[in-house]
Design a protein around this nucleic acid. Structure first.
Lengths: 171, 171
DNA sequence: GGGTTTGTTCATTTGAGATTGAACACTTTA
DNA sequence: TAAAGTGTTCAATCTCAAATGAACAAACCC
């Protein structure tokens, strides 16, 4: 951890106005905190502040990112439920707009990014309980057992708190 | 986002038993989700599963990390309130043990890693409201204003939910 | 058929940030 | 006073996930 790092570099978007640029910056910071790549923040940010849906090519041109990034970023945002695909008649491109229901965004993030880690953590703790029981020294075995159980309790609290979070943030 | 990446590499710790290694692995995964460096997970994990406090040198030797990493990692863990400094008479080293009150861990993380981003986000939104008002086209100005306000609302919800989180996870 | 548009895939490259390690400061011991 | 012990700092290095971009596929058009 760099001892309290300050605001990161802003990237300049020649074809974007100041509002768009600054909104995107907010989302870039946001997704970084969530451990998602910058390009996802840029894409979601631009869609969020665009009055009309945008196509993949628009993202590539206006954000100055590669087609590959745009494609992968859109896929990730779709599986997060953060982006909606829009049909526009008379065009065979796909257009996208940002989902703006906080409930849906939070739900998607929890489902895709948080829950899997809690599940896998819980599985590991289950196994650890077995391993801890094999410790020879009784005092040490006792200690290990207590700590592993505590770890399991923490994960349980995590699983318990997620639905509450979604409820509190709902609409 | 690598489309649902699977469990990362485990590092081998020659001087650690299987319980210690696996507990450390759980914490390494955990801190990665939180956006903290691996070494912090290793240090906290080892302290968490150690019945007696450890000194900086113990961390260096048993984890095989550099003195620099250990020193910086301990500092970060101290400011997070995740580690407690212990005096041991007859030794001039500092010894450390893991704090294990969930409330304190969550509180420290929120204080150091979450709240600053919400504050800075809120400041940016305040500024954005001004910028959005300068948009010429009325429909577009209306749209920008609505979106920026929504962003501010989201951040407000975030600030609102943190104390609840701490309360629910408290002890 | 051949050409164009639209989007995906994935091997390679790049860059942010984590880690190292040597220099340094301070304290204690001899 | 020197020598050893303990810990910090920070420029240089390394690492690995993100981004690139070229090749590919599929759909459409003429």
């Amino acid at each position: 951890m760099p001892p309290l790092r300050e605001e990161d570099e802003i990237r300049d978007f020649p074809s974007l106005g100041p509002i768009e640029t600054q909104v995107i910056q907010v989302f870039v910071d946001g997704v970084k905190v969530l451990g998602l790549p910058r390009s996802i923040g840029e894409i979601y940010g631009l869609l969020f502040i665009s009055p009309e849906p945008l196509a993949l090519d628009d993202l590539v041109n206006r954000l100055g990112i590669s087609k590959g990034s745009a494609s992968q970023g859109l896929r990730a945002l779709k599986t997060l439920g953060a982006v909606r695909e829009i049909e526009i008649e008379g065009s065979r491109r796909s257009y996208y707009e940002a989902s703006t229901e906080l409930k849906r965004l939070v739900g998607g993030f929890i489902r895709e990014q948080v829950r899997p880690h809690l599940e896998s953590g819980q599985a590991k703790v289950g196994n650890l309980l077995q391993v801890a029981a094999t410790e020879e020294d009784p005092a040490r075995r006792e200690f290990y057992d207590a700590r592993v159980k505590q770890l399991g309790y923490w994960i349980g609290r995590g699983r318990f708190v997620l639905p509450l979070l979604q409820k509190v943030l709902g609409q």
